[in-house]
Design a protein around this nucleic acid. Sequence first.
RNA 1: GGGAGUUUAGCUCAGUUGGUUUAGAGCAUCUGCCUUACAAGCAGAGGGUCACAGGUUCGACUCCUGUAACUCCCACCA
Length: 884
Amino acid sequence: MANDKNELLSKNFEPQQVDDKWYKHWLDQGYFKSVPDGREPYTIVMPPPNVTGVLHMGHCLNNTIQDILIRHARMSGKNACWVPGTDHASIATEAKVVGMLRERGIIKSSLSRDEFLAYAWEWKEKYGGIILSQLKKLGCSLDWDRTTFTMDQHYYDSVVKIFVDLHSKGVIYRGKRMINWDVKALTALSDEEVIRKETNQKLYYLRYALSDGEGMTNEEDQDAIIIATVRPETIMGDTAICVNPNDERYKHLHGKYAIVPLINRRIPIIADEYVTMDFGTGALKVTPAHDQNDYALGQKHKLEVVDCFNDDGTMSEAAQIYVGEDRFAVRKKIAIELEEKGFLVKTDSYKSEVGYSERTDAVVEPRLSMQWWVSTEKLASPALKAVMEEEIKFYPPKYRNLYRHWMENIKDWCISRQLWWGQRIPAWFDEAGNIFVAENEAAAQQKAKAHHGDNSFTLKQDEDCLDTWFSSWLWPFEVFRGYSNPGNEEINYYYPTQTLVTAPEIIFFWVARMVMAGYEYMEAKPFDAVYFTGIVRDKQGRKMSKSLGNSPDLLALIDLYGADATRFGIMIASPAGNDILFDETALEQGRNFNNKMWNALKLVQMWEDKVTDIQATAEDEFAMRWFANRLAEVKAEVAEQMKQFKLSEALKVIYSLVWNDFCSWYLEWVKPGMEAPIAATVLEKTKGYYTELLLLLHPFIPFITEEIQKQISPESGDLCIAQFTETITADKTILQQGVLLQQVISALRDVRNKQQIKPKEKIQVSLQTTESDMYRQISDIIQKQTNSDSFEFVTEKIAGAFTTVVGKDTFYVAGGEPTDSGLQKENLEKEKAHLMSFLVSVNKKLGNEKFVQNAKPEVIELEQKKRADAEEKLKIIEENLQSM
RNA sequence: GGGAGUUUAGCUCAGUUGGUUUAGAGCAUCUGCCUUACAAGCAGAGGGUCACAGGUUCGACUCCUGUAACUCCCACCA
């Protein structure tokens, strides 16, 4: 697969040349396929995107995280299984299909159910797979053979069976209630599908004349009652006016009647404490058909219900006027008419929360209607317990509170939708309105026959279908046919799954319900952990949306930067649960990182031509020992972070290890001179370290790591299925020596900068230290890294040289123009001042009797060491200052 | 109206049970470099009274109380 070793590598990494090649290779090798075996499983079921969807930044984040977890598990000896799929998304898809038909000049109502469904399936086959194929571009290591759709036959059947089962248990029932009605989609919505938005409205003050008992209007104002409403178009549905019984202004009106303007309906004036006296006029028009509260009031006071709207939000016959016109058009018109006829007293501007349909963005109409419901109380209790007792862990844990709050206040779930695309409700009615719930028509017939004792009936199936979430809550087990084929090998092996990665927005829609279904049907949790991603926002923190046009084209980004850079960019700053502010510069950072690694590869490959069997130098040995330990240290750190799902942090740490420790320090330390050879052992070790880095990075940026691995070692196996190596315990001493070396190099380079010594100009370094043995093994590195042509140990100050102190060692740098003693004096004075004030604070601490009494011995010891170190260093600096 | 969360360098965030050389990283900024792996780069530097006010403690970014700002969730004031 890999290029020939001697082939010239391109200047920069070109993802377009390698991404597809490797994805195809991994697929051909079947690396993403999982079958149950002796290994421990690591299972993730992908949150199935809507068939209507196209890949957006949210999917990118979500699936990148899942792929990182899955690849990390695969490389950790686990049997990794990641299941893809799509959701039929009843409302959203039906809306798309209706739209498509409209473009072709077909109206839905002119089609039979079967004809419509044929179009819907056609649409699904054509567009439904796009989003999954886009995930391949991202590098997602999904087990494609397991791809599941929520309307696959086994899945559809399971949904229906579960409906029947819950109905037989009395958990599912039918009831007439106030529901949220979507006038665009013409269906009921669950409470969760309603988005409340603060909306500017007008509050209309309307004058309702008081009735003399004969239904006559009286034109005098004192004989009227004024109400405030934001919905003047519903006055035709008014069946009472309500005031607070304690409201002195209206006490004389209790039991009297008022006249609804325009239609002259006579309605009673009732009293109820529900009404707030200081809102509006303290008098409320009661419209039981169009408001939840009014409905409750109506029930209590046995009021008539007048529904003045049609399904689609136009005025109904019952409204008497404006029949067939849209509710919002009528609102404007009726206000004018009311004003003209003297019923409108005034208007105020007013802000309130209005419910919008999540799917169609239509203003939701509260409506009384017969629907199917899931009683959630019993299902909720084990589901609440599992999260509270951390049998299921949430990352970040703050979402436990949110979950608890919802579960403790859970309401029944409206599951019927007046749509065709979805699982049809398995309930049949006879002419008398008896309901028979059964898996299929034959079974319903049997039930009906048993009920009637003969065949004197015809059955008609409920026209409605089920809420999408009533199918997606089975996802974690039915993708393994855990319900349709209970106890099969796969469900036993893969369930419970390990991690669910999803957005907090669907914690109620989906997460909570999967937990309920898991306990109800598998008698076990669906997953061990839930990782909540944040919301992807734009640079200014706004949500990405089509209307704002701030949602970047993901595929274009992948084309431009490559999949790895895209994954890097989205992951580098997105801790669990935090919203991420998407900024294209992060992708640039990812691309730059790829180039950095690519160039390191080029460097190492150049060394191939310089190999000899010479011995590694002491400096090489030091560099290698240091890097091996540094690598060990980071590996341990990364392992810990992965365990805690700190993916962003892990990536940052590896990034820094590669760029700073490996490229900036290690490679420079072992780099041979221009014409000099390199020891074979050094090259081999270096390639080994590089491979270790690639292993760590592979879950994050799979393509380039696979490519580089093949470049440095064409015979090696594929990184995709490679296993992480064991971690040794890092040696603290060598790590500290490494840090010291870096500090020395930086300090000397700083002197060069401050003295304005040109990079090409050599410097001469002298060192006054008590650790000359240690420095002897790294002196060549220091010289190489600071471009100095001499390095000597001395016992006193070098005249005319620039003095700088690192730790307890004093360096004298000569070279370039004569030293500016003012500058170096200033430098040392600054450091002196810093040490002095530091000493003051340490001394204060150590001088405090209570501190010495109460603090832990190791803390006191540390403070004493701090003091000793600071004093020693201060002494060195003062000596240097004196000799200036 | 109720609940939760956030507030640390210009930006995005780390900071584990209070003590780790008087707060770390990346990006951005500034200075000097086209040094043959890399200018999409290299080297170096600057930048924070840890939102504010109290309290507990020998010691607070870390614990407690209050205040402010922002974010999210839930909720039937027309």
